[in-house]
Amino acid sequence: MLQPGVWGVVATPFTGSTFDVDEQSLARLVEHYEQTGVTGLTVLGVFGEAARLSSEERRAVLETVVDTVELSLVVGATSLATAPVVEEVRLAQEVVGDRLAGAMVQVNSADPHVLANHLRAVHEATGANVVVQDYPLVSGVRISADALVAALRGLDFVVAVKAEAPPTPVAVAALTSALDVPVFGGLGGIGLLDELACGAAGAMTGFSFPEGLVACVEAWRKGGYEAAREAWLPYLPLVNFEQQAGVALAIRKECLRQRGLLLESGVRPPAASLPESLHDQLKRHLAAVK
């Protein structure tokens, strides 16, 4: 099973008008994650803009991360179809080796039999453990909690679920009560406190202050709800600000740039860039957290 705690979801930095992968910034970013005390990293996820990377760029990202830190890794697969997912997982295995804690595979069908067969085929073809990501905003697939439980029950190679179907606390409660696997929240940490209260094993997300995620989860582990609430409160306005639909990715990358972790904050088209009207407010939020 995936170790509980915070699995930081890593952005892919770009540079210049051609949006080349910035390996130097990437190395600096994952070093920061390691220093904050995260359990592991999630690479080539939605926040990593993996769907906009070539296979060669994905390899370069993985190689940079592996060469820079010694953390365990979850590596995302972008496709919903079995054959390309298998190819992506094999690439991850080739580069990451035994540090691959799990391949993150998206829910691809609301039919539990179709989903179970998909996950089983990926595992049988690769031997990889699987982290199941339920993220309907990205996949376009909406599955009920009961159907997801039915799909995953008995699949012993599933080592975690990433629950990102709102309302996430309800989803976490349903999944943790029915499955013997850790369930992690995402969505920038906006529901983290409530997800922990409903049984989440931690967070797997790309909030620009991973030290805040770590502080909240560690406080929950040691002191329960009140301690976690106290630890998380200073970050909540920024969490909310970052989660604005359509520009969340651009906001987070600019936060990371202003923190000195990225050289540039560009997002690859067709993703939306940061609106000029939000720049001053972003500076206020960052000043408050610092």
Rank of each mutant, 00 (worst) to 15 (best):
V21Y: 08
A92Q: 01
L274M: 13
F184I: 08
P84E: 05
S17W: 08
E242F: 02
D146M: 06
L175H: 11
E34L: 10
T126P: 01
L213P: 07
P169M: 10
L262F: 14
G5N: 09
P166L: 09
L26A: 13
P4Y: 03
D67R: 13
A271G: 07
T18Y: 09
T82H: 11
A83Q: 06
K162H: 12
G202D: 02
V181D: 01
H123R: 12
L256Y: 03
A272F: 10
H32E: 10
W232F: 15
D180C: 08
Q93W: 03
V172Y: 00
L91W: 04
C216T: 15
W7E: 00
W232R: 09
D134P: 10
C216M: 14
G16N: 04
H285C: 04
T64W: 01
A128M: 12
Y235R: 02
V75I: 13
A272M: 13
L80M: 10
L62N: 02
W232M: 06
G76I: 13
L152G: 13
K253E: 06
D156C: 06
L41W: 01
E230N: 06
V289A: 12
D98M: 03
P269K: 05
D67L: 11
P275Y: 12
R259Q: 15
M204I: 03
E57L: 14
V214C: 02
L192P: 10
S72E: 15
F47Q: 12
L80K: 08
F184C: 05
A50F: 03
A103Q: 05
M1V: 08
A271R: 15
R257W: 07
A51N: 12
A173I: 07
S139K: 08
A160N: 05
L119T: 10
F14I: 01
V130H: 13
V131I: 15
P167Q: 12
G5Q: 06
P112A: 04
V158W: 04
R268Y: 14
G185L: 04
L148I: 04
A272R: 12
I251F: 07
A227F: 02
L73M: 11
L2A: 10
G185Y: 05
L286S: 03
N240G: 06
E195L: 03
D20G: 12
A227T: 10
G37D: 06
I143K: 02
H279D: 08
C255N: 07
A248E: 02
P270M: 04
A121T: 09
L282D: 05
V239M: 05
V38G: 06
S17R: 14
A197G: 14
V9I: 14
Q133K: 11
R259E: 12
V141G: 01
E49P: 03
H285K: 07
G266D: 03
V159W: 00
A219F: 14
V65W: 05
R52F: 09
R58F: 03
